[in-house]
């Protein structure tokens, strides 16, 4: 006897599911408008000590020591680009895992899982609204921080955005794998806090990785994010890059395909294991 299902999945239904997930998250986000304010001002608060610290290292407003590493003494533009990219990295990298954790805590994960929609699609859907809100809050943040500290990109914004895309798409792979780990371990905070500090540190969000102690540089060079941040800065600020920019772009594109495949495999394996154990609804 053939099993029949009432659902008739098609491209249209999948897109509708994505839209519904994004609309739900959009509503939830704007129910707490203070979060948006916090998203704008938190990064500014974190980089303010760096701004004043940079002044203590500068002569006539020029950070010459910094320029020797990067080719540009404009350390605040350098850091602001790192901060904006970090906002997106955090959204993609950790957003899916956090979203699953929230669904677990609210007790809706199991019922969502029963819907005839691809699970990876559910994960991607959870990032759509946050990508949009991150774009809005990052632009507002950049305008305010630019007025306070100065932001002077001299290169091509379009080329920089194009370069950032494979990096962010590749990060979805990391996000899938992390979401799987959250399903298994049911706890995300410590992993996210420690992990994001380490990833940000080693990939050089606030400083050029060349300035790291020599024994930490190999770790940094193993992270594809390092090349993404480096290439975007090279294109926007014309800073010295670790490798020629086309080579860095090739690395990012290769990273995108490899990570998407590996991340999806890890997620599916863990998800199957969790369903076998029957622990999907536990938190």
């Amino acid at each position: 006897m053939e099993l029949t299902t009432l659902s008739q999945p098609s491209l249209r239904t999948q897109l509708r599911a994505l839209f519904v997930i994004a609309r739900k998250d959009w509503k939830v986000f704007w129910r707490y408008p203070l979060n948006a304010v916090s998203n704008v001002f938190q990064p500014i608060i974190w980089i303010t000590p760096v701004y004043f610290m940079g002044k203590a290292f500068s002569t006539d407003g020029q950070a010459l020591g910094f320029a020797a590493y990067t080719g540009s003494g404009d350390y605040m533009s350098y850091i602001l680009i790192g901060t904006v990219l970090t906002n997106f990295i955090m959204t993609v990298f950790w957003g899916m895992g956090y979203a699953l954790k929230n669904d677990m805590d609210s007790g809706v994960l199991e019922s969502n899982w029963l819907a005839p929609v691809s699970r990876l699609l559910i994960l991607i859907g959870r990032t759509l609204t946050s990508m949009l809100t991150t774009t809005i809050t990052s632009i507002v943040m950049l305008v305010i921080a630019g007025a306070l500290f100065g932001f002077k990109p001299t290169g091509s914004t379009f080329a920089a955005i194009l370069t950032a895309i494979p990096m962010l798409v590749g990060l979805y792979g990391f996000g899938f794998a992390f979401a799987g780990i959250v399903l298994l371990m049911r706890e995300a905070n410590t992993m996210v806090d420690v992990g994001s500090f380490l990833v940000q540190g080693f990939s050089g969000t606030n400083f050029p990785v060349r300035s790291l102690p020599y024994w930490l540089i190999p770790i940094s060079l193993m992270l594809p994010l390092t090349y993404g941040l480096d290439a975007v800065r090279g294109l926007l600020l014309k800073t010295n890059t670790l490798l020629p920019i086309p080579v860095e772009v090739v690395i990012l594109i290769a990273f995108m395909f490899v990570m998407l495949w590996i991340g999806a495999q890890i997620f599916y394996r863990i998800e199957r294991r969790v369903r076998t154990l029957g622990t999907l609804g536990q938190h």
């Binding site: 290292f57 010459l64 020591g65 940000q200 540190g201 300035s211």
Partner: peptide
């Protein structure tokens, strides 16, 4: 890890020849 973020930024601001550090010490 929390102070490390600022320490590594300060290290970058110092420069490879530590010229920035001399300014910091003077300040």
């Amino acid at each position: 890890i929390f102070p490390m973020m600022y320490i590594l930024t300060a290290r970058a601001l110092s420069g490879p020849d530590e010229s920035g550090l001399a300014v910091f010490i003077a300040t």
